[in-house]
Design a protein around this nucleic acid. Structure first.
Lengths: 349, 349
DNA sequence: CGGAGTCCCCAAACCGTTTTGGATGCCCGA
DNA sequence: TCGGGCATCCAAAACGGTTTGGGGACTCCG
């Protein structure tokens, strides 16, 4: 059942039917009701392709999510981010288009989205240091919002981000307060923006107290369970093992915990651990008595905000870029405690 | 730059340009090359909305993924399944549309996909016992492939599934061989098809040997870390605790391991654990020496197969439904061992 | 009574492709 | 010489909506 047929059925012109259904004022209330009733009865739904061809709006948002090159890994936080964004889209009648492409083909994916006319806006995921994509998208001229920020970019653009620096600075402070002096950082890939900022927070906290921090305790890699485990095992085998470990996600933290147990040590007593918790629905850290002491910020909420922001930019234009910075909570759990006495002596390194 | 402009630029009709670019034979090789060169030079990409309006094909596949009602959880295996499917789509020039909706609104989502004309086919996720969606989709008349099967349905339809029954039967057999007689099953939600089949395999293995199995050792719930942990803790506190635990996913297994350690027991010695491993990219179980003994079947590969099958059905029609059953490997890891001697006596229950 | 203003409605153009149904010119064989 | 076949191109009609630019009927007012 299409518009023309419906119009004929009603003895009206397609124009009037269209206007009635879209709530234009040039149609009497009586006929509007009649049209609406008929549309419901026949189960009429306007064809989106035709509509968007006519209006020029695709009523869809594109997400390009990169496959980390090495293990073709898809970052598990995307699932929750997308769930948050999807909520907003479906309320607004928008579709969500997802394109999963190898790291290297991302730029082509953006251009295709634009030129094929299949989306009205784009969410940029996982920005890296000096990311080229932002420049590209600005030149392409399509509305977009970045989840995160591109570190060394002087371009201005809209973004939703968590205060990574502050979160990790606070967490590091907390460990320093507990007497820890050798703290390891098991971080995300080196050039990911979030990893850079977290590292900066980690280092700032040390420097504010004049505590030395050396690079042999800092690690970067893809956030897998394996990475957390292997790194921790190697760390604990060192003569002057760290007394605390910070990491960027729940997933490697599980591996860290495994390695600590394998070394017959106890987390929270022998080794303290602080993680960043994205509040993933399937890996809850616990509300009242969290397993891990954590900086927590809901990635699903970030998805909601980014989507809301993007739809707003599409609807109202953006003279000046919008930004939204979320602060993380610091939740004390069972995985942290004072540094063991024998380690409290001056750092021998 | 659209087709009309390009045609004018070339001094040709839109018809000829369209045919040249789409490889029709009615255009000379010379002009085809000239058109192709001009298209490349101007960076022309056909507008997908217009094209699909004209052809009637949307060149997009829809995935409706349900939000588990209680915790609004999005199943983390979707990420990998979608990564696999996405690979296939992008090679074939298809887009992927994702709609994340609360459990209850799924049917509406399917109808919208169809009537709005935004997709050519649909992948059905997470079928449940006696699922109504299959009947709905057949009546709606849109090609679809189910990831999994709907247990009590007599309808015929296309699906890609893993041999859940056989996998869990083999795994249970393996535990029985090792002398275990009290085996717990921490399974997915009761009416999920995969959970039903796995339970059936679990029970079949027991019955084949005349080993009793009682329902007090079987649990169903959403596959979170917490669920695995809490259930295991309760189990281990029982007077006649089970000596082995089977579970449906890596995620609860992590909680199971945590609970075992908290009880000062050792996995693989005091309590054996077998999991099903979906081979998620961010939670690798290890290749050569797996952490968990596991039945393994790549959900990403399932995504590839389902997508390939669906595209084939769309292209060639489907007189008879297609099916693809994947067998899981049984990988021996560190989490299993012979039943402890003191438990080998006849089951006191 | 005539003209202006409103209220409803409609015919036709348009969005950017594909596809149908020729049209043109040329070569070839009868 | 003429008709048929072939190669190459094109004009116009779809596809299913929205939007522009009126137009008729009615009311109101001078």
């Amino acid at each position: 059942m299409n518009l023309k047929e419906l119009a004929k059925e009603l003895g009206l012109s397609p124009t009037t039917v269209s206007r009635a259904l879209n709530g234009f004022p040039e149609v009497s209330e009586a006929t509007r009701k009649r049209v609406q009733a008929a549309a419901d009865a026949y189960g009429y739904r306007p064809n989106m392709r035709a509509r968007s061809l006519a209006t020029g709006r695709a009523m869809a948002i594109g997400h390009v999510i990169p496959l980390a090159s090495e293990h073709e890994m898809v970052n598990p936080v995307f699932a929750d981010f997308i769930a948050g964004a999807g909520e907003v889209y479906s309320k607004a009648g928008y579709d969500m288009l997802i394109s999963i492409v190898p790291e290297a083909e991302q730029e082509r994916a953006y251009e295709e989205f634009k030129y094929k006319g299949s989306v009205d806006g784009i969410i940029v995921h996982a920005p890296r240091s000096g990311d080229q994509r932002i420049k590209l998208l600005k030149s392409v001229g399509i509305p977009f919002v970045v989840h995160g920020r591109a570190s060394e970019s002087d371009e201005s653009y809209s973004w939703v981000d968590m205060n990574n620096l502050r979160a990790f600075q606070r967490a590091t402070d907390f460990l320093l307060d507990l007497g820890h002096r050798r703290i390891a950082l098991i971080n995300g890939l080196e050039d990911m923006d979030f990893a850079i900022r977290r590292r900066a927070g980690f280092e700032a906290a040390h420097e504010a107290r004049g505590v030395s921090h050396d690079d042999s305790l800092k690690f970067t890699g893809e956030m897998t369970e394996q990475f957390g485990h292997d790194t921790t095992r190697a760390l604990l085998a060192r003569p002057h093992a760290p007394t605390a470990i910070m990491t960027s996600s729940m997933i490697p933290a599980i591996g860290i915990r495994r390695a600590i147990r394998e070394a017959n040590l106890e987390m929270g007593r022998d080794v303290s651990v602080i993680i960043h918790d994205d509040d993933l629905s399937y890996l809850p850290n616990g509300r009242d008595d969290p397993i891990f002491t954590a900086t927590r910020s809901s990635v699903r909420e970030a998805g909601r905000r980014a989507a809301t922001m993007l739809l707003d930019i599409i609807a109202n234009g953006s003279d000046t870029p919008r930004t939204s910075l979320m602060e993380a909570e610091l939740l004390i759990g069972q995985s942290t405690g004072p540094a063991p006495a024998h380690a409290r002596t001056t750092d021998p390194v």
